[in-house]
Nucleic acid binder design. Structure first.
Length: 289
DNA sequence: CAATTGACCTGCAGGC
DNA sequence: TGCCTGCAGGTCAATT
């Protein structure tokens, strides 16, 4: 059986955000257990004590980041708890009196547990230990937020066009560059380029307005369709929603991890190129613009 | 400044 | 059976 770890990108993070947003807002963090201090490596400090007795205001998302604004008399106004799932981070939400969830799930990579009011429990599992948590104030988070590009979900022609202007790297690299546009990774860059019939190795800076219109349309539509499907999970893959549910967008993928299969448009076998640490999938025949 | 490469991690498939 | 290698890839620091 093929092992296909599916890494969370915008649609997967958005699906998780919705799941968390159904429970977290207005609940109080009663207790925090951090089982792996590497989770906080960016600041090097475990802010667990400061988190307790705070109220979670909402659960928001920009790109692949989750942001939870907090309300506490002990924290300065605007303090935010942020999480990035990186490769394999997963949230599970259940109630403490319902131990079945935890018994069912493999918790050997449990990294943190948050106990909330009304007996809700949020478990954070991360096999590969790339995920990170971060607490920042508007002041300390300025750099992070400023370096993050506009969210890809509703990216406009104008925004895409100006973000790619002057770039000499490939379209693929620009699409995956979170400083330019936030939320797209390896799956959805391949899928958007296939839908737009564009070569992955075109210089990003050469896009015309018309090209930017075409590409931004396909970015928006592939991301929205994937969100409707609940994201992409693979057989035995890593991504799950907060209630352990799989997403079904894998059934709608046209090129990603479909090397050798016929292109849905022209039947040419899909090709694969290694690009740095990741692979690009494309149709050599009908992705020529 | 922009682009590229290696490090960080772990589990599994496939080869021998 | 078990060891070894390659692959999955988001982000950042270091390098070109």
């Amino acid at each position: 059986m093929l092992y296909n770890p599916i890494v969370p990108e915008l649609p997967e993070v958005e699906t998780i955000r919705k799941g968390l947003a159904a429970v977290l807002p207005n609940r109080i963090v009663q207790k925090v257990f951090v089982h792996d201090s590497r989770l906080w490596r960016r600041t090097g400090q475990d802010p667990t004590p400061a988190l307790e007795k705070t109220r979670i205001i909402s659960v928001e998302r920009q790109g692949k980041w989750l942001f939870c604004p907090l309300d506490s008399p002990h924290l300065s106004t605007g303090t935010i708890l942020a999480a990035h799932l990186r490769m394999s981070g997963k949230f599970l939400v259940d109630k403490t009196e319902n131990s079945a969830t935890h018994e069912r799930h493999d918790l050997s990579h449990l990294r943190a547990t948050l106990l909330l009011s009304d007996a809700y429990r949020v478990s954070f599992v991360d096999t590969r230990r790339f995920a990170e948590f971060l607490i920042f104030t508007p002041e300390t988070g300025k750099t992070l937020r400023a370096r993050l590009g506009p969210d890809a979900l509703n990216i406009s022609t104008e925004t895409l066009f100006s973000a790619f202007q002057g770039r000499k790297g490939t379209l693929k690299a620009a699409l995956c560059n979170q400083h330019l546009i936030a939320g797209i990774g390896n799956i959805y860059s391949d899928e958007a380029l296939w839908r737009a019939k564009m070569r992955w190795d075109r210089p990003a800076g050469h896009l015309s307005k018309k090209d930017a219109e075409t590409l931004s349309f396909h970015i928006r539509s592939v991301l929205k369709e994937a969100i409707v499907a609940g994201g992409t999970s693979a057989k035995d893959g890593l991504y799950r929603g907060v209630n352990e549910e799989k997403g079904w967008f894998a059934l709608q993928l046209d090129v990603y991890q479909r090397t050798g299969y016929p292109c849905p448009r022209c039947s040419t076998p899909i090709e694969r190129r290694q690009r740095g640490g990741s692979a690009t999938h494309f149709c050599p025949t009908c992705q020529q613009s």
